[in-house]
Each structure stands twice: as structure tokens, then as C-alpha cells.
């Protein structure tokens, strides 16, 4: 009997509080799989955000620090500068990273902090019950954009991976999605790559994961996957936006 699939050791054996079908659960597993693959659980410190993933500190078997809303990249900077040989990752939602924590994100990237940022983009504030997020798509109905997001009133969403690619301190930036097996597999590779970039002290790495929020989008978990494909991916194209490790040949393909 060969094990084809088992749960990563870096993931605790605690039932998660996430809603049914919420892809946070998949993202947690992929991060834990990367930690297992590099065998770094003993040297890793994770930084939990404020948002649905605020309880992330219950789900990883490495040391965890809970950061104020939006401040995870700054907290991670402090942890990494204290012990540069430790692996440090933040796990943040779109409100945490792209709204209140934008400055911390940009400046941690600009400093080339050797940390890995896991950015869950589900275009909504989940924990607080479905408000518009900085990544909510024009027309998207939320509790604070009940008539659909109108750019002339609520402005345009931020494309974080593209922004990150313009910053010299960023070594690796990729956007992936969790809407089907193929994309989840790609996300796994991307997250492991980010941790490898950190291991090789190449600078800041960020993986943006297009994710679902069935509860606050008001759709079934399966329909939510379609929403990611039909609505989000067109607005947030997948792909590697920066990779300083890629040789010139690869990068030009």
C-alpha cells in the first residue's frame, strides 16, 4: 500500500473554523506542505493576520505570532531581523494586506525582507461579514457596495502581484488560484518556490492566491470556484510576475 495523499505534518490536527468550501483550508495545507518539503518546521515562525485567518496560529505546528490588522509584514520584519536564519511567513487576507496593511506590504517588499507573504485574495472582508475589499471587482455586490462596486464612487481594485513586480526588493511574485486541481497544484509549486527563495536569501517573496468566500459571496462552494474562474481570473491574470531566480532564457519565454 503506497500513500498517495496524506496531510502535512506542519498542519495541526485541529478542525478548522472556516466555512464549508472556503479555500483558506487548501491554502493552509499548501503552506504546510511547503514547510514539510523543506523540512523547516523547527525554524519557522508564521505571522497570523486579522481576518478569517486570525486563528491561523491554531493550524500550524511551527511557532506563531498574531499581528495587528495589516501589520504582519512589519511584525515579520522584526522576527526575521531578530533571527535571520529563521523562516518567516505571513498569511494575510486582502483587507489585511491590500487595505490597512498596504504600506507595510510595499515597504517590506522594498526592503527586500527575506520573508514569504501568503496573500489570500477573495475580494471581500470575510470575518466581518462580507464588506467590500480593496480587491472587490467593479460591479461586485457586498454589504458595503450593495449596488455593486462603482469605480466612480468606490474606486478601482488593486492588482497586488503586478504592483509587487515593480519593486526591486521583490525576488518572487506569482498569482495563482485555488479554483481547480490544476491551479491548486500550481499554487503548491509557487508556495514552495517562495520558501526556497527565502531559503536562498534572495529577498521578498509573495504568492497571491485567488480564493473563494462562499458564505459572503452568497453562492455554493462549487459555484464559488466558477466565480473565481469567470470573474476573478480575467481581472487578476494568473502567472509569475517576478522571478529574479529565473535565468534570462526562462524569463523571456
Amino acid at each position: 500500500m503506497i500513500n498517495v495523499f496524506e496531510n502535512p505534518k506542519a498542519l495541526t490536527d485541529i478542525a478548522s473554523h472556516y466555512c464549508p468550501g472556503c479555500t483558506h483550508g487548501i491554502a493552509h495545507r499548501l503552506v504546510a506542505e511547503a514547510i514539510d518539503a523543506l523540512d523547516i518546521e523547527g525554524q519557522t515562525i508564521g505571522v497570523a493576520p486579522v481576518g478569517c485567518a486570525v486563528f491561523a496560529y491554531n493550524y500550524f505546528n511551527c511557532d506563531m505570532v498574531q499581528a495587528p490588522h495589516g501589520r504582519a509584514p512589519a511584525v515579520a520584519t522584526g522576527i526575521k531581523r531578530a533571527n535571520p536564519d529563521n523562516f518567516v511567513f505571513t498569511y494575510q487576507g486582502d483587507g489585511d494586506l491590500a487595505a490597512i496593511g498596504t504600506a507595510e506590504t510595499i515597504h517590506a517588499a522594498a526592503r527586500g525582507e527575506n520573508i514569504t507573504v501568503i496573500f489570500i485574495n477573495n475580494a471581500i472582508y470575510g470575518m466581518t461579514g462580507g464588506q467590500m475589499a480593496p480587491t472587490s471587482i467593479p460591479g461586485q455586490v457586498t454589504t458595503t457596495s450593495p449596488y455593486g462596486r462603482k469605480p466612480e464612487i468606490q474606486g478601482f481594485p488593486l492588482r497586488i502581484s503586478e504592483m509587487m513586480a515593480t519593486i526591486d526588493g521583490v525576488a518572487y511574485a506569482e498569482r495563482v488560484a485555488l479554483d481547480n486541481v490544476k491551479n491548486v497544484r500550481r499554487a503548491k509549486v509557487a508556495i514552495q518556490k517562495a520558501f526556497e527563495v527565502q531559503r536562498d536569501k534572495k529577498g521578498f517573496s509573495i504568492i497571491e492566491l485567488l480564493s473563494t468566500c462562499p458564505t459572503n459571496w452568497g453562492v455554493s462552494p462549487v459555484t464559488a470556484l466558477d466565480y473565481v474562474r469567470e470573474k476573478m481570473i480575467p481581472y487578476y491574470p494568473l502567472g509569475v510576475y517576478k522571478d529574479i531566480t529565473a535565468s534570462k532564457k526562462e524569463a523571456s519565454e
Binding site: I45, P68, R71, A74, V75, T77, G78, I79, R81, A103
Partner: peptide, 20 residues
Amino acid sequence: LQAESEVAAINMVLGASAAG
């Protein structure tokens, strides 16, 4: 390290202190 704001600075302090 000079942070991008006092808000970031105190949170870096939180991180470094949490690291011991």
C-alpha cells in the same frame, strides 16, 4: 532600521520582542 511609519516601527518591535 528606519520603518515606513511609527505604526510599522512598533509592529517590528512586536515581532522582534516575540522572537525573544
